[in-house]
Design a protein around this nucleic acid. Structure first.
Length: 282
DNA sequence: CTGTTGGCC
DNA sequence: GGCCAACAG
C-alpha cells in the first residue's frame, strides 16, 4: 500500500491544518497542475543507468519508460478543462528525442502491419489547449501496441468519460500503465512486434482520481474521493463496456508491484485503494 | 504529408 | 460530429 514514514503523515497533516486555518480563496479556476502530484508509482528516475524505469518529465505528462520493452511502464497526467481547447489532432507519430543517446528508438512505423494500434496512454484528445500539447501526445514513448477494440472502444469510451468529468468541473489525476506479456490483436496473438523491439503487454490498467477543481495537492484526497481503477485484457475479444473491468487500486498494485497514490496520506490510501468504483460510466 | 476510409458512441 | 485509428497515393 505504501512505505510512507509516519513523520511524513504528520507533516502532511500539519500542512493541511495550516492550509485550512488560512483564509481560503474561493475555488480556483482550472489549472494545468503537476502530473506527479499524487506520487511516482515506481520511483522512476531520469538516469540512463535506469533503463527499465526511466523517468521522462514533459510539460504535458510524466512517464516511466522501459527501454527493453519499448513501451512505458506507466504514464501519469493531470486533466482539467484547462487542458481542453480547439487544437486539432496532429497525428505526428514520431520517435521521442528525449531518450538517452544509443537507446533504440521506436518509430512511427514500428507497429505497421502488426494488428495492434499505436495506442496512446495520455490521449490526444486530453491535450487540445495548444498544437504543441497535442503534438506531444504522439511521441512513441507514450504508445503501446494495443488491441484495436481495446483502444478504440473500451479505452476510448473511458477516456471520453474522463473528459466529460473534466468539463463538468472536476480535475482528474490519471495514471495508466501496462503489465505482462502477450496480447491478441486483429491479426492474432503476439508477444512482441518490431522485430522483438517492442513488447505487447497483456493487461492495460488505469487509475483515475476525481477531485473538484482546485490546486494540485495530495491532501485534498479524502476517504470519500472517487477513485476509478480499471484493468483490461489487451485482447481484441474484450467487452467494449469498461465498467465491467473495474477493480481496486490494491489489486493493480499487487499485479504491478507499484505504489500508487503514494503522496496521499496512508489512512486515506487504505480507504480509497481497497474500494471498487460503482459510480456512473457515462 | 495529405487525403480518404472505417468503426463506434 | 467527435474520437480512435489504418492505409493509399
Amino acid at each position: 500500500m505504501n512505505r510512507f514514514p509516519s513523520y511524513c503523515t504528520r507533516l502532511l497533516f500539519a500542512l493541511a491544518l495550516a492550509a485550512c486555518s488560512r483564509e481560503d480563496p474561493a475555488p480556483t479556476t482550472p489549472a494545468q497542475d503537476g502530473h506527479l502530484a499524487l506520487g511516482n508509482p515506481s520511483g522512476a528516475v531520469t538516469d540512463a543507468a535506469s533503463p527499465t524505469n526511466y523517468l521522462l518529465l514533459k510539460p504535458q505528462y510524466a512517464l516511466s519508460y522501459h527501454r527493453d520493452k519499448g513501451i512505458p511502464n506507466w504514464v501519469s497526467w493531470h486533466l482539467s478543462s484547462a487542458w481542453l481547447g480547439a487544437s486539432a489532432r496532429q497525428d505526428d507519430f514520431r520517435a521521442d528525442p528525449d531518450l538517452p543517446a544509443g537507446w533504440y528508438q521506436v518509430s512511427a512505423s514500428s507497429y505497421s502491419g502488426s494488428g495492434f494500434d499505436r495506442g496512446h496512454n495520455c490521449p490526444s484528445a486530453d491535450r487540445t489547449a495548444s498544437v504543441a500539447d497535442n503534438s506531444a501526445t504522439f511521441l512513441m514513448t507514450n504508445m503501446i501496441p494495443q488491441a484495436p477494440r481495446n483502444n478504440q472502444q473500451t479505452w476510448g469510451d473511458l477516456e471520453e468519460y474522463c473528459r466529460t468529468l473534466a468539463r463538468a468541473g472536476n480535475e482528474l489525476y490519471i495514471i495508466q500503465g501496462q503489465y505482462g506479456t502477450g496480447g491478441v490483436g486483429s491479426s492474432g496473438a503476439r508477444t512482441t512486434i518490431d522485430n522483438g523491439r517492442v513488447t505487447v503487454p497483456k493487461r492495460v490498467w488505469k487509475v483515475v482520481v476525481v477531485l473538484p477543481v482546485g490546486t494540485a495537492d495530495a491532501t485534498r484526497v479524502t476517504a470519500s474521493t472517487r477513485v476509478i481503477a480499471v484493468d483490461t485484457p489487451n485482447d481484441n475479444g474484450l467487452d467494449p463496456a469498461w465498467g465491467g473491468y473495474r477493480t481496486s487500486v490494491d489489486a493493480i498494485e499487487a499485479a504491478t508491484g507499484y505504489d500508487l497514490l503514494s503522496a496521499v496520506a496512508p489512512a486515506v490510501q487504505q480507504a480509497v485503494e481497497a474500494r471498487v468504483d460503482n459510480g456512473p460510466t457515462q
